[in-house]
Simulated assay, not measured.
Amino acid sequence: MTTTHFFFFFFLSFFIITTGATDFVRPIDRSLLGLNRKQKVSHFKFYWHDIQSGKNPTSISVVPPPMNKINTTSGFGLVNMIDNPLTLAPELTSKLVGRAQGFYASACQTEVDLLMAMNFAFIDGKYNGSSITILGRNSVFNKVREMPVIGGSGLFRFATGYAELRTHWFDLKTGDATVEYNVYVMHY
């Protein structure tokens, strides 16, 4: 080993020991992530369109409920993948502001309660390219439901908050629905 190699390894070892570079986690300066700024609270109102019928559904069943194994009217076990439009007004033809991408699953044997996991991926204005992540329980036949905002991306990094849902329209025959979302989110 040459003297140059020795000093290189000596300083590398000294650096690792003194900086803790081998630790699994280390504290960082909040300002490096933009966390020294004051949090904002924003209210978003849009309509979520779950379209299961027609030639171009935005919600498809990927796991049907196992009706032969469990006697239930709740659809327990059903899983749908979604890529649902988010619009400014209840009409599907109104301005598109984003898409709800994720899934919902029937998670209750006795009621129609869904476990929902989705990203609201925005495509409009200053929030274009940012998303809000929702994960929670949706008791679909309650007049008002609430689900937590668990995070986000882009302008919604470190986001928290909640969403209030109200069914605007539901077609029992097709399964199509339009739901009003009011999302209150704290973000930087």
Rank of each mutant, 00 (worst) to 15 (best):
F8K: 14
F8I: 14
F9L: 15
F9E: 15
F9V: 11
F10E: 13
F10Y: 15
F11M: 10
F11P: 08
L12K: 05
L12C: 08
L12N: 02
S13F: 09
S13L: 12
S13P: 01
F14V: 07
F15V: 07
F15R: 00
I16A: 08
I16S: 06
I16Y: 00
I17T: 08
I17W: 04
I17R: 09
I17M: 06
I17E: 10
I17V: 11
T18V: 10
T18Y: 03
T18G: 02
T19C: 06
G20H: 08
G20Q: 05
G20N: 04
A21F: 10
A21S: 15
A21K: 05
T22S: 12
T22Q: 09
D23N: 14
F24C: 03
F24Q: 13
V25M: 12
V25E: 09
P27V: 09
P27Q: 10
P27C: 06
P27R: 07
I28E: 10
I28T: 12
I28R: 08
R30P: 15
R30S: 12
L32N: 12
L32R: 11
L33T: 12
L33I: 08
L33M: 14
G34L: 11
L35I: 08
L35F: 05
L35C: 09
N36K: 14
N36P: 00
R37P: 00
Q39R: 15
Q39I: 08
Q39T: 14
K40S: 14
V41E: 12
V41Y: 00
S42D: 12
S42R: 10
S42A: 12
H43D: 02
H43E: 10
K45V: 07
K45I: 04
K45M: 02
W48C: 00
H49K: 03
D50Y: 02
I51W: 00
I51K: 03
Q52V: 08
S53V: 11
S53C: 09
S53Y: 08
G54I: 07
P57C: 09
P57I: 06
T58N: 05
T58Q: 05
T58D: 07
S59E: 07
S59T: 15
I60Y: 01
S61R: 14
S61V: 13
S61F: 00
V62G: 07
V63H: 06
V63F: 11
P65M: 07
P65C: 06
P66H: 04
P66K: 04
P66W: 01
M67A: 14
M67S: 14
M67W: 05
N68E: 14
N68R: 12
N68H: 14
K69E: 11
K69D: 10
I70M: 07
I70V: 15
T72S: 15
T73I: 10
T73M: 10
T73A: 11
S74L: 04
S74P: 04
G75M: 04
G75Q: 02
F76R: 00
F76C: 01
G77A: 03
L78E: 06
V79M: 10
N80C: 13
N80G: 02
N80Q: 12
I82F: 01
I82M: 11
D83I: 03
D83E: 11
D83F: 02
D83Q: 09
N84K: 00
N84H: 05
N84G: 00
N84P: 07
P85L: 13
P85R: 13
P85D: 12
L86H: 02
L86M: 14
L86C: 06
T87Y: 08
T87C: 08
L88P: 01
L88Y: 00
A89W: 02
P90I: 01
P90S: 08
P90A: 05
